[in-house]
């Protein structure tokens, strides 16, 4: 796990390194809104993915512990997953509205 996080750290550093070397002369104005949109979508997707994973894990554990409560847990999980997904969609819509 630690090696994997180190790998991601290096990869993210490389993503920034190449454009930094490429800069020079009269460059076009940077579209910061698009860059911020990309970052916000990435953050929203990551957090929504984490939240969905956590909700699913908790629901699976609860259903395994108490199978009699399955209908209620299943209903709450479906609603929760649908609403979490919609949060990522909100971000996407805002990005489309701002970047266009």
């Amino acid at each position: 796990m630690r090696n994997l996080s180190k790998l991601f750290l290096v990869l993210s550093a490389l993503c920034f390194a190449m454009p930094a070397f490429a800069q020079g002369g009269a460059s076009a104005p940077v579209n910061w809104v698009a860059i911020a949109g990309g970052f916000s979508m990435a953050i929203a997707s990551a957090v929504c993915g984490l939240a969905q994973g956590k909700a699913t894990a908790a629901a699976a554990e609860a259903m395994a512990r108490n199978p009699a409560a399955r209908p209620g847990i299943q209903f709450a999980l479906i609603l929760g997953l649908a609403l979490i997904e919609s949060l990522a969609l909100y971000t996407l819509v805002i990005i489309f509205a701002k970047v266009k």
Binding site: T56, A59, A60, M63, A64, P67, R70, L77, I78, A82
Partner: peptide, 19 residues
């Protein structure tokens, strides 16, 4: 999407409860 989500959660419930 919602229909498949329901089916997936139902399948997950089956797996979790072993039924």
């Amino acid at each position: 999407n919602f229909h498949w989500l329901k089916r997936v959660v139902s399948a997950l419930g089956d797996r979790a409860t072993g039924t």
